[in-house]
């Protein structure tokens, strides 16, 4: 057990799984850096340094710098998975899914079904998402609802370093395609993380706060916001439950309903576009299954239905914030 960052936890999960199983390979744009040149090798380790150091342990055979073509990366990874490897493919920014979505939607997600359960596709797609880095509207989106919409893919959104490691190991060992989504703002959050390998099963949400007066439901980056607001409310004499979904597909419906029923007042905090996102989906679930336990309308804190602004003041205004979540809570408390 030692304090590790979210970035280090992901790196350690990759290292340990590559050691355990030689079928695990990593591929993507500059996942090492310098392939085929005389220049510095392992110069990048991924655009934010998450895969740095893997090259030294496992070499070019298993840490594969690819050309700049997401279509090819995803196609190669899915095909390799069908032949028995366990590829971890990196789609640098989730925003780039546009050019490779056929590989995900019509190929990877469908193999098991179309081949009558005789083919498995143990591919993990790691990708960065989310706003806050001033990276403008094609590098800041929060697109997990586009994947939760598709049956046959599992969608994982770790919120902290402990979950990042356990969920990534689970993703790699899972026999189905998994989209593993890393929020750019979380890489430096730290936590006590076991040094050994461990897993966290999919479809198990986590209660990060326990309270009686109000329930916050968050995922990925918004869990931290919910925790902070819960702590602030506690100092004001109100106690809040916070539920971290951990995986969006499969979804831990039991815990969502349990969390909603405990307090009857629910605020869902979701960084994705507001039409057909997780907030609307959870809201519908709670209304259908636990309507009689609700004591107030469900509040949804999401961005407006616009592209992510490049202007820093506008981006700050756009994203869910502690202030917005606090105000939403106050309206129904």
């Amino acid at each position: 057990m030692s304090v590790k960052s979210y970035r280090d936890a992901i790196n350690e999960a990759l290292l340990q799984e590559m050691k355990k199983d030689e079928n695990v390979v990593v591929m993507g744009e500059d996942v090492a850096g310098g392939a085929g040149t005389n220049g510095e090798q392992d110069a990048w380790g991924g655009v934010l340094g998450v895969t740095k150091g893997l090259l030294g342990h496992y070499g070019r055979e298993r840490v594969i710098d690819t050309p700049i073509t997401e279509t090819a990366i995803l196609g190669m990874a899915s095909g390799a998975a069908l032949t028995g490897l366990r590829p971890v493919a990196e789609l640098m920014f989730v925003d780039f899914m546009g050019v490779c979505f056929d590989q995900i939607l019509n190929q990877t997600a469908k193999f098991r079904y179309m081949f009558g359960g005789k083919a498995v596709t143990p591919v993990t797609i790691r990708t960065m998402y989310g706003g806050g880095l001033r990276a403008a509207s094609q590098h800041s989106q929060c697109l997990y609802p586009m994947f939760t919409h598709v049956p046959g893919i599992k969608v994982v959104v770790p919120s902290c370093a402990y979950d990042a490691k356990g969920l990534l190991i689970q993703s790699i060992r899972d026999d189905d395609p998994v989209i593993y989504m890393e929020h750019k703002n979380l890489y430096d959050v730290t936590q006590e993380v076991p040094d050994e390998s461990y897993t966290i099963p999919f479809g198990e949400a986590n209660f990060t706060r326990e309270g009686k007066d109000i329930t916050f439901i968050g995922m990925g980056q918004t869990v931290g916001i919910c925790n902070k607001v819960a702590d602030k409310l506690k100092s004001e004499g109100k106690s809040a439950t916070v539920l971290d979904l951990r995986t969006l597909s499969p979804l831990d419906e039991d815990s969502v309903l349990e969390a909603a029923e405990e307090t009857g007042k629910v605020v869902i905090v979701d960084e994705s576009y507001p039409r057909c996102n997780m907030a609307t989906d959870l809201s519908a679930l709670i209304c259908q299954e636990s309507f009689s336990s609700l004591k107030a309308p469900i509040k949804m804190v999401t961005p407006p239905h616009t592209p992510v602004p490049f202007s820093p003041p506008l981006e700050d205004l756009y994203l869910p914030s502690e202030e917005k979540v606090y105000n939403a809570a106050k309206e129904i408390l």
């Binding site: 076991p194 461990y198 326990e210």
Partner: peptide
């Protein structure tokens, strides 16, 4: 028995070996 206590035991049980 709180949820935290249960979670702690689960985290332990989920370590390889």
């Amino acid at each position: 028995i709180t949820r935290d206590m249960v979670n702690e035991v689960l985290s332990y049980k989920r370590i390889d070996g």
